[in-house]
Write a protein that binds this DNA or RNA. Structure first.
Length: 273
DNA sequence: CACGAGACCTGTTCGC
DNA sequence: TGCGAACAGGTCTCGT
């Protein structure tokens, strides 16, 4: 599921709760269970079990694609990678097939980290910066300006698509939202970042923020078998629309491979300089 | 420095 | 219908 809008949606679900699920804020951790060792990045399973009990969830936030639980003493970070998901459920039910790590609370609920492909990771650290320290700016934050983006594009000579996927350049975009942002900004995915004009950089900045804001409003995108109620997939302009007409000009959307990733763009609207 | 390929994994969809 | 190939929202590491 997981790019910035989907992670933000899950984050809100955990923090605000729903009519049937309580918020996790303020809950006291009773115990934990690691069902697949490699899903736990750090510390060891033993230390994980030792440190968690008794800690309270005091804050739930997001940084890039990481979900950050601030606990009494430590920070618990989760990255969902390709197929991860987080669910709040009764503590006494049988763990589902792809559940990898469970955290039990004193109120009879548990948080389940479900991850079919086992790419996701969980960290328990005393300083979250140990995990998120290398991330680039947060695209929706007030301190991320178009001027910033322009400057940083000038500092390197890389193709736009792989550059925007690089989390140390900008945090939170993934394959869907890079394609969507570049299409809205009318920029070719292979364009050299150093050739981007200031005007184009402003357009890219606006596009990224518009696409992410709209996607969050629609609770993210739900595709394939992972479904969480988001419906932004019905508003894609480029992603997964190969052969279908461009929203702006009607030209069929083209699909190419860039760095092993499927890349969708309009050959008419998104031309290289 | 910039890029491509391979690895890590399981499940679904596509093509013959 | 069956079966292998290709593909999937991510990121790391290695070789050129």
């Amino acid at each position: 599921m997981p790019e910035l809008p989907e992670v933000e949606t899950i984050c809100r679900y955990l923090r605000d709760g729903t009519s049937t699920t309580p918020s996790l804020l303020g809950l006291v951790i009773k115990s934990a269970q690691v069902l697949w060792q490699r899903s736990l990045a750090t510390p060891s399973v033993d230390e994980f079990y030792r440190r968690l009990p008794g800690q309270v969830i005091t804050k739930i936030s997001r940084r890039g694609k990481f979900i950050l639980f601030s606990l009494t003493r430590d920070s618990l970070l989760i990255h969902l990678r390709m197929s991860g998901d987080l669910l709040v459920e009764p503590a006494d039910t049988l763990p589902a097939l792809h559940h990898r790590i469970l955290i039990f609370f004193q109120n009879g609920k548990r948080l389940a980290f479900n991850d079919a492909r086992k790419f996701g990771r969980v960290w328990l650290v005393d300083d979250p910066e140990q995990v998120t320290g290398g991330l680039g700016p947060e695209p929706l934050a007030a301190n991320f300006t178009a001027e910033d983006l322009y400057q940083r594009l000038q500092e390197t000579h890389r193709q736009l698509k792989p550059l925007l996927l690089d989390q140390s350049f900008l945090a939170g975009l993934g394959n869907i939202y890079v394609d969507e942002s570049l299409n809205l900004a009318r920029l070719h995915p292979l364009e050299n970042s150093a050739l981007i004009t200031e005007l184009q950089a402003v357009r890219l900045w606006e596009s990224i923020r518009q696409v992410l804001t709209e996607a969050i409003l629609r609770n993210g995108a739900s595709i394939d078998w992972v479904y969480r109620g988001g419906d932004f997939q019905n508003y894609f302009r480029a992603y997964d629309r190969a052969g279908q007409p461009c929203i702006a000009c009607g030209t069929p959307i083209q699909r190419i491979k860039v760095g092993q990733r499927g890349t969708h763009f309009c050959p008419n609207c998104q031309k290289r300089a």
